[in-house]
Simulated scan of single mutants.
Amino acid sequence: MDWDKIRLFYEVAEAGNFTRAGEKLGVNQSSVSRQISALEQELKVPLFHRHARGLILTEHGDVLFKAAQEMRLRLEMTRQRLTETSERPAGALKVTATVGIGGIWLAQRIKEFLDLYPEVTIELILTNSELDLAMREADLAIRLRRPTQPDLIQRRLFTIQYHAYAAVTYLERFGEPVSVEDLDHHRILSLGGGQPEFILDLHRLTILGRNPKDPRTSHLTVNDSLALRRAIESGAGIGMAPDYAMNSNPEVTQVLRDVEMPSLEAYLVYPDEMRSVARLQAFRDFLVTKAQRWAY
């Protein structure tokens, strides 16, 4: 099959209609429609269901779209490899991390990497959802649990300890809890929203030392870990947070120090096919070095 025709088909499938695909490719709508019809005749199968509101892939079209997507990714990877050398890493690198790790730990260190490798550009995607690395939704990920997806290289970075924290101003006003039972008389701040269950489990002061069927009231529930940290710092109440986000902050203090609290292992993860890409190797080695220095 002609790659130009497949590329045209791919853009139409991505756009969902002939007009938008034509605008992106600089071709008029009628020409795009004719070329797709010609491709369908050549393959002897329909690729789209045509509706007034747009185009929907047929079963055959979906098979071709997935193949075209894989071809496009491999061509892009080949192009990027040809433009860099191991001595001079260059090109774009898409990195994903959780909101907390990426927004605090990684963001504080990224300047040094950019200074070391000025020809590498970083796209940092902060999300608690696990992007599909095999489909190149990202090139490299920092994850808070061991990955189960096959064909991924993984390396443990460090252990993240979580503890209960409150602002000094809050404790001056309400006193410090000395036991888990004392939390019954304090304002509890919680992480919520559409987070993975294992992330939510880290922040459940509402059920610490209690029957889960009879939880404490959460006076504030927020779906963003950075916003939760800000609320703790402001004196809104007591909440769970990772030590790396709070240790250097003189405005907050750890409470319930004698209570065993949860921890997570952070992993560096990337596809096996990216193993020899110079810019990924450089970023991987940089992160490992920073993690070792930080952990010890």
Rank of each mutant, 00 (worst) to 15 (best):
H51C: 15
L82H: 09
T78S: 14
E76N: 05
V95K: 00
R72K: 08
H51K: 14
A97L: 14
I56P: 11
L57S: 10
G91C: 00
G102T: 07
K66W: 05
H49S: 15
A92H: 11
E76H: 07
R74C: 02
M71R: 14
V63A: 15
F65D: 11
Q80V: 00
I56W: 10
R53G: 14
A92K: 13
T58D: 11
L82A: 14
E70V: 04
T98E: 13
G102I: 08
P89N: 01
K44T: 12
H49P: 09
A68R: 06
A90T: 02
I56E: 15
T78Y: 10
M77W: 13
E70F: 10
Q80D: 02
K94Y: 02
L75Q: 09
G54P: 03
Q80G: 01
G61H: 07
A52F: 07
I101A: 10
T78P: 08
A67W: 13
K44W: 05
A52V: 06
T78F: 09
V63L: 13
L57W: 04
L75I: 07
A67Y: 07
E76T: 02
A92Y: 14
L55P: 02
M77Q: 07
T58F: 00
K66F: 06
R50M: 06
R50C: 09
L75Y: 07
